[in-house]
């Protein structure tokens, strides 16, 4: 009998695995399609912009003949579909092209690589910090629900989410460096200069993690199994740690891969005030300079990151939470 049960559950698991695989493949295909549509759309839209951006800084001082010669040399007199086709041909070889304006004639991959590294490094540290601070904060608030630590925490979280971050980041930079010996600007070789950017980067996520952790825990605290555990006489602490916290952490897991991946996008505010040479604001920068190849490349990267992040998050959830079954949910759609 025991044997039969095992066999049954094994075959069920196998079926489940197939489902997961199928699901992954399907998701992957859809993701590729989304990427294709996004890139094509951006590519065409950028071609609708005025020509100034293609001609460098001196366009007003160029004569008509020179402008015409330049456009022809760049292939911009060709129809958009041809240009698009060339773009995809290069993309297929893993070549994102060269920047035109942001750093003239330099491979985009070469520009972006070190930036991603720095943003990811700081971002990962900030994320670690925010998890280490935010999760216990949320747990503490949930445990002391309605009492002053909870109220204080809520106030802190609401403030962080409500106040314009451009303002309080600058505030931190100006006042935290006064007399403390902390440098105002980031320096890759001096870890002490990383402190303030990391804290600034972490603050909003601390608020975020704290808020969600508290919510999930409070949610769990009302579940029947918690009542049962308490009725059984399990100590409050044990209930919290063993049951509530663990279960509440599961939904948090899902967001971690994408948050981690998104750190490579950098933070516009923080990186720009601390001179962190990362990705923050790069997209805006290249958009404003109309460096089309860079815009395409960045949109491609960010969209891919978004898709991969979601994807990993979902997979992770399936792995972490045994209750989730693709079959069940799939049918309810």
């Amino acid at each position: 009998m025991l044997r039969r049960v095992t066999l049954f559950s094994l075959s069920k698991r196998k079926k489940e695995d197939e489902k997961v695989a199928k699901y992954i493949v399907k998701r992957f295909g859809a993701a590729l399609l989304s990427l294709f549509i996004i890139i094509t759309l951006i590519f065409c839209l950028l071609r609708l912009m005025p020509i100034e951006g293609y001609l460098g800084a001196n366009v007003d001082k160029l004569s008509e003949e020179v402008i015409a010669a330049k456009l022809a040399a760049k292939g911009l007199d060709k129809p958009v579909p041809v240009q698009l086709f060339n773009f995809y041909r290069n993309l297929a070889r893993g070549d994102l092209g060269k920047s035109w304006i942001y750093r003239e004639n330099v491979d985009i991959v070469k520009i972006i690589k070190p930036k991603i590294k720095i943003s990811a490094k700081l971002g990962a540290m900030a994320m670690a910090l925010s998890l280490v601070v935010g999760i216990p904060l949320g747990a503490l608030m949930a445990r002391t629900k309605g009492k002053w630590p909870d109220k204080l925490g809520t106030g802190f979280i609401v403030f962080l989410q409500a106040a314009p971050s451009a303002v309080y980041f600058l505030f931190i930079q100006m006042y935290a460096t006064k007399g403390t010996g902390l440098p105002m600007l980031y320096n890759d070789s001096k870890p002490i200069s990383w402190i303030l950017p990391i804290i600034s980067l972490a603050l909003p996520s601390i608020a975020n993690y704290g808020m969600w952790m508290r919510r999930y825990m409070v949610d769990q605290m009302n579940q029947d199994y918690v009542k049962l555990a308490r009725a059984k006489g399990v100590s409050n602490k044990a209930v919290m740690m063993k049951h509530v916290f663990r279960n509440a952490f599961v939904p948090m897991v899902q967001t971690i891969p994408s948050s981690l991946l998104f750190t490579i996008m950098g933070s516009l505010y923080v990186e720009s005030i601390y001179s962190v040479p990362g990705m923050g604001g790069l997209l805006i920068d290249v958009i404003q300079r109309q460096d089309n190849t860079m815009v395409q490349a960045l949109v491609l990267i960010f969209a891919s990151v978004g898709i991969i992040g979601l994807f990993l998050g979902d997979i992770l959830m399936v792995l972490v939470d045994p209750r989730i079954s693709l079959t069940g949910k799939g049918e309810s759609r």
Partner: peptide, 21 residues
């Protein structure tokens, strides 16, 4: 390393990196 296709659709075998760094 791999010939890139420039915007005119031609293959470029070499690149001159003068003034890129």
């Amino acid at each position: 390393p791999t010939p890139t296709i420039n915007d005119s659709g031609e293959e470029e075998l070499v690149t001159n990196e003068f003034g890129t760094d």
